[in-house]
Design a protein around this nucleic acid. Sequence first.
DNA 1: CAGTGGTCTAGACCACTCC
DNA 2: GAGTGGTCTAGACCACTGG
Lengths: 228, 228
Amino acid sequence: MNTWQSVRAEVLARIRSREWPPGELIPTEQQLAVQMGCARATVNRALRELADSGIIERRRKVGTRVTATPSRRTTLEMPVIRHEVEALGLAYDYQMTSYSRSRPTEAAMHALQVGPDEELILIKAKYLADGRPHCCEAIWLNPHALPVIPAEDARTQPAHEWLARNVPLTHGRFSILAEGASGDCAHNLNVQAGTPVLTIERTNWSDATPISFSRQFYPPQHRLVSED
Amino acid sequence: MNTWQSVRAEVLARIRSREWPPGELIPTEQQLAVQMGCARATVNRALRELADSGIIERRRKVGTRVTATPSRRTTLEMPVIRHEVEALGLAYDYQMTSYSRSRPTEAAMHALQVGPDEELILIKAKYLADGRPHCCEAIWLNPHALPVIPAEDARTQPAHEWLARNVPLTHGRFSILAEGASGDCAHNLNVQAGTPVLTIERTNWSDATPISFSRQFYPPQHRLVSED
DNA sequence: CAGTGGTCTAGACCACTCC
DNA sequence: GAGTGGTCTAGACCACTGG
């Protein structure tokens, strides 16, 4: 078969068999197309996939090289929490726990590029699965950069869902870390203060303007899983 | 310009402007090719990229739909620790702290699909950045599934690097979680027992055979970062 | 300048799936 | 059966980059 998948498989096999060892150049697209009896576009598609996976590195004029020390690259899904909970077959519930205008924390200042005296909207909330705490979050919104979310809207739906529907988000940034639960977070997750929690920070941008900065906290048994 | 990037940008703009709202079908490749004045293959390339990002969903005969509630999808790099440390401009060092044959833990049993009485190779090690603990790890290897790594090799290099050079790894599975540092881990990271650590579990496979199961522990200040 | 990958095209056929 | 996306082809030109 002359599918791009079969070309990818063949190239992968030769890399794994050390016929093309790490660090070495492999044949050009033209040569491979002849060897494999297919069009160059097909070879290109196969090699592009391998390059996206970090298996090979491609440079014009130089050629295609087997990555010497492949850093694993994997695609991580950050699901909407409602889906995450429902996928477990559990009853989903969202509760806003506070809505206020507050001075930013150091991290929020930095993420949203505002000064220490600019008041931001701060919404705290928790997500329940079958009535038990699944996750809690704090999200800062810049009222100068976007329409203000009404408290009533924030009470009934996660701010992220409201954002997705009302603001054209262009890109974002994730940060994953472990930390000890602070008082508020411990209370909402129903664990002792200091319990290790998995924290996911997220900054959302609309073009050049930072829109929101959120921190979501998951109790210790929670895992982010990914395959390749 | 009739590049696939410009087609992607145009489609994205119409989605963001709500001209094509979430859940709706967008025009067919054929129609878009006419509208944008380019070949269908170019439209296909653009839409395939958007589908890979989770922005749209495509089904034969049905068409292309704007994802109703986009779950964020992001690519996470799991770098070789040596590169990670050197990229910070710090001196890298690797130290094996123990090498033994041991009965598997519950997690290792499950990951490597062995019984409770099968002895596995267990290697513990730590990684240093400028002499300070950067990460520590425990890795179980199945001696019945692969050549046994000599203790001398394990002393001088991370087992993962040895594996990459000596076994054809086909795929893997990651799991990211937060937990409290256990005694060994706390000692190696030079923190108090119970300190929150970011744990990355990884199972590597060679075709249908699980080869290795590792757990790497990072101190609280460590972050996994990713952009989209 | 020349060699390599990056992309576009026009057309074709196939694979899947709804009706 | 018919409509949609998935892929292959042969050829062409472009973009980048090393010598």
